[in-house]
Design a protein around this nucleic acid. Structure first.
Lengths: 201, 201
DNA sequence: GTCGCGCGTTAACCCGGGTTAAGAACGCGA
DNA sequence: TCGCGTTCTTAACCCGGGTTAACGCGCGAC
């Protein structure tokens, strides 16, 4: 299902988390299913039972909540070799409450949790790899908690620019605003302030 | 090191996450070290290398950051049978940046990550248990992200009261305020608003 | 007892961000 | 080419929460 190049990239990425024997690698590749999304399509939506997650092969996805008033709140952007899917809801066995939308055309390598879980029942390597994957997610969320607790909106924006500069070109500003927890208008003002004092762009 | 009662409680708690064979259980108990903290003592502080985590046997702990201006920001409160420790920093192999303080006298069951990790190298059960433990942490952080993104300060406070009512009696309000990301003054105002319209306490 | 201190409350003032609305720049399909 | 939608910006006004400060309370140390 994957090209040799893609398989190589995925192997390198997962191998960086935990050692993977050839046998385990075969199992992983056999469990995944390739999937294409056109720009604007959804990988997952609230209401569906949360049973699948994916590794992004190419393209860019956006995870977001939608509240009763219709306001979108962006949880995450996910690019190549990153995890996508309503992972917290999968763990809890609950219906998803997050939208996952392709911001660009995207290729995914999709897994059914139940299948991966079953395979992991007899594979220490898979358990460990799983664990590391969740650890990465956990650290990311804790970093985000840190930023919401300690930083002002302006500092969160600077931090975003510093740590995810590739995304600045490809994502509309109102989605970045939502990601850092403010409105598009407020972000525009913050950018305006910075522009006055040198710091172009 | 643990009383029979404590061991029983710990076994029940961990067993709810993933099945544990008697052999694995022996290993876990052998790896842990009991530790007592007096009220006000610290289990972990920034600067120390982050190598230990613990399960709380009894008592109440507080995890918090301290910024350059001296402001404390509370990350979490942890009670009996919950995980404590600078877990994100342990995963990253970085020095801790969080304070972990005993709000009451507390008993902990402490593990050295390196030792547990080594033991898990040959135990699928331990890997799986580990993974589940991290998953629980991850879900909690994602819930917190949700609350910061979608809820107002007042709604976060109501949510806190609803989901952790036991803590209301034991924790000073300025620490609760910090936990939900506002100042003590603001929390007092919020409580004042509620008091006017019935809702005692 | 009383002194001090940490805690919660209240009030006054300030400011950052929300809200609403209008307009400019751009892309895109008819 | 025109028209429409989307994105970004700017301005005006409002409000929630931050800041500072004063006051009262309960409690432990002495």
């Amino acid at each position: 299902m994957l090209t040799a190049l893609e398989e190589r990239a995925l192997h390198d990425r997962l191998g960086a988390l935990a050692p993977i024997s050839p046998k385990t690698w075969k199992a992983i590749v056999a469990l995944g299913l390739r999937m294409s999304l056109a720009k604007g399509e959804y990988f997952s939506q609230p209401g569906e039972k949360a049973t699948r997650f994916a590794v992004v092969i190419s393209g860019l996805l956006r995870h977001y909540y939608l509240d009763a008033a219709g306001k979108e709140s962006v949880k995450a952007f996910r690019g190549p070799m990153e995890l996508s899917g309503p992972y917290a809801e999968i763990i809890q066995g609950r219906p998803s409450r997050t939208f996952i939308e392709a911001l660009t055309a995207a290729e995914l390598f999709v897994f059914e949790v139940a299948e991966v879980d079953t395979a992991a029942e007899s594979s220490l390597e898979l358990q460990r790899l799983f664990r590391r994957f969740v650890e990465v997610q956990f650290v990311a969320k804790e970093q985000r908690e840190y930023e919401f607790l300690l930083l002002t909106a302006e500092e969160r924006y600077r931090q975003f620019c510093a740590s995810l500069p590739e995304l600045l070109q490809h994502i509309p500003q109102h989605q970045i605003a939502s990601y850092i927890g403010i409105t598009p208008v407020a972000l525009s003002r913050i950018r305006g302030r910075g522009r006055g004092r040198g710091k172009g762009q």
